[in-house]
Deep mutational scan, measured.
Amino acid sequence: TTVHVNGVTYHFPNPEEAKKFVDRVVKEAGLTVEVKGNQWDVE
């Protein structure tokens, strides 16, 4: 699973890890998340 955060790419072994990361980032920074298949874009 690939997560893009403001142009930076993070790779995770599974969607659960990616979701935990995204949830944390979104809570801390108040960002928006767009999910496209296995790819997350966070802005």
Score class of each variant (00 low, 15 high):
Pro15Ala: 13
Leu31Met: 13
Leu31Ala: 12
Gln39Ser: 11
Thr2Met: 08
Gly30Ala: 07
Asn6Trp: 09
Thr1Met: 08
Trp40Gln: 08
Trp40Leu: 07
Lys27Ile: 11
Val42Asn: 10
Thr9Leu: 11
Lys19Arg: 11
Lys27Leu: 12
Gln39Lys: 08
Val8Ser: 07
His11Ile: 08
Lys19Cys: 07
Gly37Ile: 10
Asn6Tyr: 06
Asn38Gly: 10
Gly37Phe: 14
Thr2Lys: 05
Asn38Tyr: 05
Val22Asp: 01
Tyr10Glu: 01
Leu31His: 09
Ala29Asn: 11
His11Pro: 02
Gln39Cys: 15
His4Asp: 06
His4Arg: 14
Thr32Met: 08
Val33Lys: 02
Asp23Lys: 02
Thr32Tyr: 03
Lys36Thr: 15
Arg24Leu: 13
Lys20Thr: 05
Glu43Asp: 12
Thr9Val: 12
Glu16Leu: 06
Gly37His: 12
Val8Gly: 03
His11Met: 06
Gly37Cys: 04
Val22Thr: 04
Val22Lys: 04
Thr9Met: 12
Val22His: 06
Lys19His: 08
Asp23Ala: 04
Thr9Lys: 11
Thr32Ser: 11
Val22Gln: 03
Val35Pro: 01
Lys19Ser: 08
Lys36Ile: 15
Val42Pro: 09
Val42Ala: 10
Glu16Gly: 04
Phe21Pro: 01
His11Leu: 06
Lys20Gln: 12
Asn14Ala: 03
Val8Tyr: 09
Val5Trp: 12
Phe12Cys: 06
Glu28Asp: 07
Val8Trp: 06
Asp23Cys: 11
Glu34Pro: 14
Thr9Pro: 14
Ala18Leu: 05
Lys19Glu: 09
Trp40Glu: 11
Lys36Asn: 15
Thr9His: 06
Tyr10Asp: 01
Arg24Asp: 11
His4Pro: 01
Asp41Val: 15
Gly7Ala: 02
Glu16Tyr: 08
Asn14Ser: 12
Asn6Met: 09
His4Asn: 13
Val42Arg: 06
Lys20Pro: 01
Arg24Pro: 02
Arg24Ala: 13
Gly37Leu: 11
Glu34Asp: 12
Lys27Pro: 04
His4Lys: 14
Val25Cys: 10
Val25Gly: 03
Asn6His: 06
Lys36Val: 15
Tyr10Ala: 02
Glu34Thr: 14
Arg24His: 11
Val42Thr: 10
Phe21Ile: 00
Tyr10Pro: 01
Phe21Gln: 00
Asn38Asp: 15
Asn14Leu: 02
Glu43Leu: 14
Glu43Cys: 11
Ala29Met: 14
Val8Glu: 09
Tyr10Trp: 05
Thr9Trp: 07
Thr9Phe: 08
Lys27Tyr: 09
Glu16Ala: 08
Val26Ile: 13
Gly30Val: 05
Glu17Ser: 06
Val22Glu: 04
Pro13His: 09
Phe12Asn: 00
Gly30Thr: 07
Val25Glu: 04
Asn14Pro: 00
Val35Tyr: 14
His11Cys: 15
Asn6Val: 02
His4Met: 14
Val5Gln: 02
His4Ala: 08
Lys36Ala: 15
Val3Lys: 00
Val8Lys: 10
Arg24Met: 13
Glu17Pro: 00
Asn38Trp: 06
Gln39Ile: 12
Lys19Tyr: 09
Val5His: 08
Val26Tyr: 12
Val8Met: 09
Asp23Met: 03
Leu31Lys: 05
Asn6Cys: 04
Thr1Pro: 04
Tyr10Asn: 01
Val5Ser: 03
Lys19Trp: 12
Glu16Cys: 03
Lys19Asp: 04
Trp40Asn: 07
Thr2Asp: 06
Lys36Pro: 15
Pro13Met: 10
Phe21Leu: 02
Gln39Val: 13
Asn6Glu: 05
Lys27Phe: 09
Lys36Glu: 15
Ala29Glu: 13
Leu31Val: 14
Arg24Trp: 15
Thr2Leu: 08
Thr2Tyr: 13
Lys19Thr: 05
Val33Ser: 13
Val42Ile: 11
Gln39Pro: 11
Asn38Phe: 05
Gly37Tyr: 15
Asn6Phe: 10
Val3Leu: 05
Pro15Glu: 14
Ala18Asp: 01
Ala18Glu: 02
Thr32Leu: 11
Thr1Lys: 03
Val26Thr: 12
Gly37Asp: 15
Thr1Asn: 06
Thr9Gln: 09
Trp40Arg: 01
Thr2Cys: 11
Glu43Val: 15
Val5Tyr: 13
Val3Thr: 01
Val3Pro: 00
Pro13Trp: 08
Lys36Phe: 15
Val35Phe: 13
Gln39Ala: 12
Asp41Phe: 15
Ala29Lys: 03
Gly30Phe: 06
Asn38His: 07
Gly30Ile: 06
Glu28Trp: 07
Arg24Tyr: 14
Gly7Arg: 01
Phe21Cys: 02
Asn6Gln: 06
